[in-house]
């Protein structure tokens, strides 16, 4: 096998069968190949080490910043999951418990009663419950929510902005590059620490 070695060797390829003749002296090609192999090993490990060293702070997941969100509706359509892993969350501390909730009612319709035709939510995921004569509680059924942000827009435009969108991490598959992040027109999506994976609206922020 090896007496028929080619005259020239320049491409660093080893014998395809990989059968090094036992006890034979190493050929030039084999030495070259081993050298390249070592360089490749170092290169791959070094590249990964360089890339990975910046993540020493800890692991990250995707989240959307509700203060940058403009409710464009991309969250509902661009997520690789159907329905989207983005759902509406209600910050009860920020909510004013409005009787005519602008996140709940479709204000185009004349009658503010809780009939389905008067609701803004296309899937009926918001439940309106009586608290007092002037205050009503709005609860989101996350299992129904599709993350379209219609209620969020209503609440942000006319109310306190207590309804907001969040990636739900029990649903999110944490894609290498979030498909919604790529489509988000305001760059509201960013990587956050896995230990603190939500950007929630709280009383202090509502200024």
């Amino acid at each position: 096998m090896s007496e028929n070695r080619p005259i020239h060797c320049g491409d660093g390829k080893d014998d395809p069968a990989g059968a090094t003749p036992g006890g034979k002296k190493l050929t030039r090609r084999e030495i070259l190949s081993a050298g390249l192999r070592g360089a490749g090993l170092l290169g791959a490990a070094g590249l990964a080490g360089m890339a990975g060293s910046s993540s020493a702070a800890g692991d990250v997941v995707w989240q959307l910043d509700p203060y940058k969100c403009i409710q464009c509706g991309n969250c509902a359509t661009y997520c690789v999951l159907t329905p989207s892993a983005v759902r509406c969350v209600h910050a009860f501390d920020v909510c004013a418990y409005c009787k005519p909730c602008f996140g709940f009612f479709d204000m185009v319709s004349a009658k503010p009663d809780a009939g389905a035709e008067n609701q803004l939510c296309p899937v009926g995921a918001i439940t309106r419950t009586y608290v007092t004569d002037v205050y009503y509680q709005y609860t989101i059924d996350e299992s129904l929510c599709i993350g379209c942000g219609k209620c969020v827009k209503g609440c942000a435009t006319f109310g306190n902005g207590s309804l907001f969108l969040q990636i739900r991490h029990d649903l999110c598959v944490n894609c290498n590059h979030c498909a919604i992040a790529a489509a988000c027109p305001t760059g509201a999506f960013r990587r956050v620490s896995r230990k603190n994976p939500y950007i929630l609206k709280t009383k202090d922020h509502a200024t």
């Binding site: 004013a96 608290v131 205050y135 942000a156 902005g161 009383k203 509502a206 200024t207």
Partner: peptide, 14 residues
């Protein structure tokens, strides 16, 4: 601004 404004004070809940 159309976002992040507390327009209504927190309600007196029972």
């Amino acid at each position: 601004a159309a976002y992040a404004v507390e327009r209504f004070p927190p309600p007196d809940l029972p």
